[in-house]
Design a protein around this nucleic acid. Structure first.
Length: 95
DNA sequence: ACCGTGACGTGTC
DNA sequence: TGACACGCCACGG
């Protein structure tokens, strides 16, 4: 799922949960925790509904998530995505 | 089998 | 706007 997220965009746990049909968004986060260490899964493009990088601490370094997003053109300030609503990518609209 | 915990989300007060 | 409660479900103790 995370691999479907376009570069330079980001989505929320809830959006993914909704897309998959999962009732619990917590499970999405749980799944991402395991994917964070995997280079082929852009888990850094998944944040909470406020655009906060809440899972940054699960990466190799707490700043890596922000670094990666910055590298893709996503502005991150104080561990939050700037203008998240504009960067937000809704998988349900891509159906 | 029970309980606490967690990268969450939504609803109340 | 901030704090709290509750639903959700996999995992470890």
């Amino acid at each position: 799922m995370a691999r479907l997220i376009p570069k330079g965009r980001a989505t929320s746990y809830g959006a993914i949960a909704q897309y998959i049909g999962m009732k619990s968004s917590r499970m999405v986060g749980w799944a991402m925790a395991g994917a964070a260490s995997q280079k082929n899964v852009p888990a850094w493009r998944v944040v909470n509904r406020n655009g906060e990088l809440t899972g940054a601490s699960h990466f190799e370094t707490p700043t890596q998530m922000q670094e990666l997003l910055n590298a893709e053109g996503v502005d991150v300030k104080d561990n939050k995505i700037v203008d998240f609503k504009r960067v937000f990518w809704n998988p349900n609209e891509e159906l």
